[in-house]
C-alpha cells in the first residue's frame, strides 16, 4: 500500500519512528560498545555513548576464561539439530493434522495444543527424572530431544498445519492422478511449497534453541558441555563479581549468529507467519 504523506507529516512520522527505535537499538549498541570499554568506563557518569577508550583484549579474555570456542560449537550444533529435527517432524505432524483424515484428529490436535499452555518450568523436574533414568544427565541429548519431540515443537506443528490447510487440495489430487502415494505427495509437492512456513519455523526454532537457558542449567554441569547462554553467566572474578566488559564481549559474539539469521531470513519469517494467519 502506498501512502502519500505531506512533508510535515513525514517529519512527524519519521521522528516518532526514530524515538520508538531507541529502546530496540540502544541495548544492542550499549552491549557492543561496553564490550570494548575498560570496566571503569562502563559505569562512568555521565554514561559514554561512544567509547573514549577502546580495549579489544576483552574478546581474547573470553576464550581464556572459558572453553568458549567449544561452547560456541555446542550451541551451534544443538541449535542446528533441533532446527532440522523440528522442521522435519513439525512438517510431518502438521501435514498429517491438516490433510489426513483419521479418527479423533481434531481432538488429538487439541491435546497437542495443550502442550503450549504448560510452562517449561512445570515439566523440567519430571524431565530431569526421566533423563536421569536414561543416564542422559550432563549430555546434550535432553537439549535436542525435548525441543524436537516435546512441547516446544507444538507451535511449529501448529504453524505448519495452518499452512498445509491453505494449500489447494487439487494439487494433491493431481499428484494422486500422477501416481504419487501419500509420502511422495508430502515430500515432493507439499514440503517444497511450504518453504515460507518452514523458513519461519526454522528461524524461531533456531532462536529458541540458541537462547535456551533453563534446560542447559538443569541438565549440564561440565563447562565444556555448556551452551552459550549458560556460559555467559560464568564470567566472574575471584569474588563472584561479574566481569561486565568480558561478559558483554561474549554476549556480543553470542548475538552475532542470531542477527545474521534474522537479517537473512526476516522476509521469509514474516511471510511464513502471514500464511498462518498469525501476527508476529
Amino acid at each position: 500500500m502506498k501512502t502519500d504523506l505531506s512533508p510535515r507529516m513525514k517529519v512527524v512520522v519519521y521522528g516518532l519512528m526514530t524515538v520508538l527505535l531507541i529502546p530496540f537499538v540502544f541495548p544492542t549498541w550499549w552491549m557492543v560498545t561496553s564490550s570494548i570499554k575498560p570496566i571503569s568506563d562502563i559505569f562512568a557518569f555521565p554514561p559514554e555513548i561512544i567509547p573514549s577508550r577502546v580495549d579489544l583484549s576483552t574478546y581474547s579474555r573470553v576464550f581464556e576464561l572459558q572453553p568458549f570456542g567449544r561452547q560456541y560449537w555446542n550451541s551451534a550444533y544443538i541449535a542446528a539439530l533441533v532446527t532440522a529435527g523440528t522442521m522435519l517432524f513439525s512438517a510431518m505432524a502438521g501435514y498429517a493434522f491438516a490433510r489426513i483424515r483419521f479418527p479423533c484428529a481434531n481432538a488429538l490436535f487439541m491435546v497437542v495444543l495443550v502442550g503450549l499452555l504448560i510452562p517449561a518450568e512445570v515439566t523440567i523436574v519430571p524431565l530431569f527424572q526421566m533423563f536421569l533414568g536414561w543416564d542422559m544427565i550432563n549430555t546434550h541429548w535432553p537439549l535436542v530431544l525435548v525441543p524436537v519431540f516435546g512441547a516446544p515443537s507444538v507451535f511449529a506443528t501448529f504453524v505448519m498445519r495452518q499452512f498445509f490447510i491453505a494449500l489447494p487440495k487439487e494439487l494433491e489430487e493431481a499428484a494422486r492422478v500422477d501416481g504419487l502415494g501419500r509420502f511422495r505427495i508430502f515430500w515432493t509437492i507439499a514440503l517444497p511449497l511450504a518453504r515460507p512456513a518452514l523458513g519461519a519455523v526454522g528461524i524461531f526454532t533456531f532462536l529458541h534453541s540458541w537462547n535456551l537457558y533453563l534446560e542447559p542449567i538443569v541438565f549440564l554441569s561440565s563447562p565444556e558441555l555448556f551452551t552459550l547462554p549458560q556460559a555467559l553467566t560464568q564470567f566472574t572474578d575471584a569474588y563472584g563479581g561479574a566481569m561486565w566488559n568480558v561478559q558483554l564481549a561474549a554476549a556480543t559474539m553470542t548475538a552475532v549468529p542470531v542477527l545474521i539469521v534474522f537479517v537473512i531470513a526476516q522476509r521469509q519469517f514474516v511471510e511464513g507467519l502471514a500464511h498462518t494467519g498469525l501476527k508476529g
Binding site: 489447494p168 487439487e170 494439487l171 517444497p192
Partner: peptide
C-alpha cells in the same frame, strides 16, 4: 483401485499445476 492404477489423466478446473 487408486487413481494411479486406472491409466487416466485429469485436467482440473483450477489447472492444479505444481507451482514450484
Amino acid at each position: 483401485l487408486e487413481p494411479k492404477q486406472r491409466d487416466i489423466a485429469m485436467v482440473f478446473q483450477n489447472y492444479a499445476l505444481y507451482p514450484h
